[in-house]
Design a protein around this nucleic acid. Structure first.
Length: 586
RNA sequence: CGGGAUGUAGCUCAGCUUGGCUAGAGCGCUACGUUCGGGACGUAGAGGUCGCAGGUUCAAAUCCUGUCAUCCCGACCA
């Protein structure tokens, strides 16, 4: 692991900087990272989804950015900087004006007698592909990976959780360009490894998980998730073998089993379920558990109606349905289609007598006696035996993985944890190079579209994730590499010339050896300063007080420790330097 | 975009149900004094178009209508 982190060279005295700490928790903040970032004076809100990074918060942003830069450079990526302001036309070329919809900030401005239509970049595939289309013509110019650290704009329908989900945020985005799948895989692996190093250096616990891979399939996409109870994403994780996937993607280790036909089975019974069209309502009415229901969802796969049968307590997974139906698009059917294939209003669909093909999830086949919709208004059918009363020739994995499902790799039980997505690597293939006309000629003078990958890290989200996961009841506990300062120096009595003399000397010496230090030179009582120190969470604290001076010592402690170590004044800087070197080695 | 909640001092909140004195408290801020090793104390102060607009009324922070903003849940999320 690297031991170097860039130092930000503006040493600071608290009295001369701007760190507005707060004792009380602002009412608008719900999650720990939001509360602590406000209280510790890292951020202030301008409006929903837009925050100012105050000096302390911005230092952490810069530290994370610098780690990202170093690892991108090490991985051979080249930094550039693209405009946030973009013409709407490039999004029309790739069809993403529609795909982004409301998420894309776009607006018209007047220039003379013309009207120009702009967008604020939510990401930069279009810009970089356009750039490379103009400048790459030969296979000899590849492979190459370019990256930038830039502000992105996405009109979030609902910004939330402070800085975790905002309409404007800093992101590192990288794009690889290659001539072959092999070059793409190499670039992807390099980025994947760089991401692991980045998150490790940031002191984050993270899980790389398989994500929905789109057109290329296979292991074409991974997300890097930080496990956190307030995370918005669900991660399926196997504690036994380490398998990880997001919930959209996660396979289940279930297998297909066609139930045998039951001879002389009792006939199913139709029961009236007036105005009860949801599993919840019907299960209450019939006093039956949701697990004994078959949920019949009507989808349109490439425009054709298909019914999906799931156990009542399960949720559909559209990616899996898309693969099982071999369609390119699937969406829930409209009311009209449902009426057409079931002959009933929404809420009463069932496999018996339905006027479209149906696909059966593995778990449906295992229900002994099921309740299904009757394909008639206000009616359900009970005592239905799957495979006997309706035909099953094959079963599929059609639903989201659940906690307790078998792991697809090792069959151990899967866990579901909440996570914050901090990074994403994706094999794009030729999607953008085709629509943006980015081609190259190979050695045989044959023309091909460039093969691309894209790789993002939410820099500001990384900072928030760190705060979200690294804190105690007193405040933030910064990992050393991303802390706004490495050392906080507290002279207890700033009116005591001896104390200040020693403190200032240590301050100067720390600066001289390149250690970030914040000196709390405010004329405040000791308890006040200690509380603030714990709140802003600088990893190392050096206390210089009258009592210690009388014995010739300072007190040094990690933010995580409760007891400080007594170090003789002359040895303090050397001791702290060694502590830091040791910590960064780990 | 559906559902819920909240807007009163820099921050946390009371007051509103039942309209009526000069709109309050704690923290923070200013000055002075006493303090000074885990968010001190005293005294004196500064600070508010009660989110905004309209309405009802002799009278509105309080009642009504509209509107804006923020937060939470859901839908959405390359």
């Amino acid at each position: 692991m690297p031991t170097r982190v860039a130092q930000i060279r503006f040493p600071m005295r608290w009295s001369q900087t701007f760190i507005p700490t707060m004792k009380e928790v602002p009412a608008e903040a719900e999650v720990p990272s939001h509360q602590l970032m406000l209280r510790a004076g890292l951020i202030r809100q301008l409006m929903a989804g837009a925050y100012t990074y105050l000096p302390l918060g911005y230092r952490s942003v810069r530290k994370v950015s610098e780690i990202v830069r170093e690892e991108m450079d090490r991985a051979g990526a080249i930094e550039l900087f693209m405009p946030a302001l973009q013409p709407i036309e490039i999004f029309e070329r790739t069809g993403r004006k529609e795909a982004f919809g409301n998420v894309l900030f776009n607006f018209e401005v007047k220039r003379g007698d013309r009207k120009l239509h702009f967008a604020l970049g939510p990401t930069h595939e279009e810009v970089i592909t356009d750039l490379m289309a103009r400048h790459i013509s030969s296979y000899r110019q590849m492979p190459i990976t370019l990256y930038q650290i830039q502000t992105k704009f996405r009109n979030e329908e609902r910004p939330r959780f402070g800085v975790l989900r905002t309409s404007e945020f800093i992101m590192k985005d990288a794009y690889s360009f290659g001539t072959s799948l092999q070059q793409l895989n190499e670039a992807y692996d390099a980025m994947y490894k760089a991401y692991c190093r980045i998150f490790e250096r940031c002191g984050l616990r993270y899980l790389p998980v398989e994500a929905e891979s789109g057109p290329i399939g296979g292991d074409a996409s991974h997300e890097f998730m930080v496990p956190a109870s307030n995370g918005e994403d669900f991660v399926v994780h196997c504690p036994a073998c380490g398998y990880g996937a997001n919930q959209e993607r996660a396979d289940t280790g279930r297998s297909s089993a066609i139930p045998p036909k039951v001879e002389n089975a009792a006939a199913p019974v139709q029961v009236a379920t007036p105005n009860a069209g949801s599993i919840d309502q019907v299960s209450k009415m019939l006093k039956a558990d949701a697990t004994s229901f078959v949920k019949t969802l009507i989808y349109k796969a490439d425009g054709k109606a298909v019914a999906i049968l799931l156990r009542g307590d399960h949720t559909a997974n559209e990616g899996k349905i898309r693969r099982a139906t071999k369609a390119t698009t699937v969406e829930l059917a409209d009311e009209e289609t449902i009426k057409k294939v079931t002959g009933a209003p929404v809420g009463f669909a069932g496999p018996i007598g339905i006027q479209c093909p149906y696909l059966v999830d593995h778990d449906v086949a295992a229900i002994k006696s099921a309740i299904i919709g009757a394909n008639a208004k206000d009616a359900h059918i009970t005592g239905v035996i799957p495979g006997t009363h309706f035909e099953i020739t094959e079963t599929f994995d059609l639903r989201n993985a659940e906690s307790g499902d078998a792991c697809p790799k090792c069959k151990a039980k899967l866990e579901i944890v909440h996570g914050i997505e901090v990074g994403h690597v994706f094999k794009l293939g030729t999607k953008y190079s085709v629509s943006m006309d980015a081609k190259f000629v190979d050695a045989q003078e044959q023309s091909h579209p460039i093969i691309m990958g894209c790789y993002g890290i939410g820099v500001t989200r990384v900072v928030a994730s760190i705060v979200e996961t690294c804190h105690d009841e007193n405040g933030i506990i910064w990992p050393i590499n991303v802390a706004p300062y490495t050392v906080q120096l507290i002279p207890l009595n700033v009116t005591d010339p001896e104390v200040m003399k020693v403190a200032n000397r240590i301050y100067d010496e720390l600066n001289a050896v390149g250690i970030d230090v914040l000196i709390d030179d405010r004329d405040q009582r000791p308890g006040f300063k200690f509380k603030d120190a714990d709140l802003i969470g600088i990893p190392l604290r050096i206390t210089v007080g009258g009592k210690g001076l009388a014995e010739g010592i300072t007190e040094v402690k990690w933010r995580t420790e409760s007891e400080s170590r007594r170090i003789s004044i002359g040895d303090t800087v050397g001791f702290v330097k060694d502590l830091i070197a040791e910590k960064r080695m780990v």
